[in-house]
Design a protein around this nucleic acid. Structure first.
Lengths: 141, 141
DNA sequence: CCGGATCCGTTTCGATACTG
DNA sequence: CAGTATCGAAACGGATCCGG
């Protein structure tokens, strides 16, 4: 399983290229957990409301890593534990996530976490910038 | 198949609500064909590079309609033909599509249609506004 | 325990053939 | 033209097992 696989993909359309990577029910939920909820570990992802199965999660984590969206690292202080982190490429998904969240909050009945949604609607760029800042400062974690 | 089904969905997370609707390989490609390529008919969608199967296309069209993202109408001039069109809710997906296209163009090797991509990167809001204008003017079509 | 891998029944997908 | 019907392949997902 070579971790640093180059994207030899050749979709005619960039949208299709994106969908080939994260066009499924689970991949972006994992990215959300990393990006907005500070989750890092296998067990954390299992705890989300959507109840992903362990085998599905394992496969998605591999796929996201193979596509350069997340990185897998052993915890520096406790070698038994594994941490996942977003790469630059993964952080660049922030605008996509924000727009999907804004759309879902506007058009679907969700038990919406109200504050962050209102922030996103009011100033999406600020939210995206804040995410980037937070990950820049946490790069050593 | 009631066409005007209300979204009784209750996802805790708006992102998950969005993914429940279009979190698959094909739905957003159909929206793209409507939004950026002026396609309206079943046959048109079949003509795209990604080669969607007829049964999958039929199901996705039904699902998008059931979720209020597209409308299905018989052609006024030729009752044999069927036209699909984006609803307001569907047009509101423009920012999502634009961000996914920008991300894909930046991070994946695609045979990129260069001009519109550069426009999107330079000024996404202008592209989204242009899409809205175009659909407002074509509402009678 | 944590981070998965494996097994296995069920559901969904998708290529092709076919139909009104 | 605009879809259905069919049917094998793939994905899902719950349960269980396993190495560290």
């Amino acid at each position: 399983m070579s971790t640093g696989g180059e994207p030899k993909r050749r979709s005619a359309c960039p949208l299709n290229a994106s969908l080939e990577i994260f066009g499924d029910r689970w991949s972006l939920l994992v990215v959300r957990d990393l990006m907005f909820r500070g989750r890092r570990r296998f067990k954390d992802f299992l705890g989300s409301d959507e109840r992903i199965a362990t085998n599905i999660l394992a496969e998605r984590l591999q796929r996201l890593e193979a596509n350069g969206i997340i990185e897998r690292r052993r915890d520096a202080r406790d070698a038994r534990r594994v941490n996942y982190a977003l790469t630059e490429k993964g952080i660049d998904l922030a605008p996509v996530l924000v727009e999907m969240i804004v759309w879902g909050a506007r058009h679907e009945k969700t038990a919406a976490p109200p504050k962050m949604i209102r922030d996103m609607v009011r100033d999406r760029d600020a939210v995206v910038t804040a995410i980037r800042e937070r990950w820049k400062n946490a790069k050593d974690t």
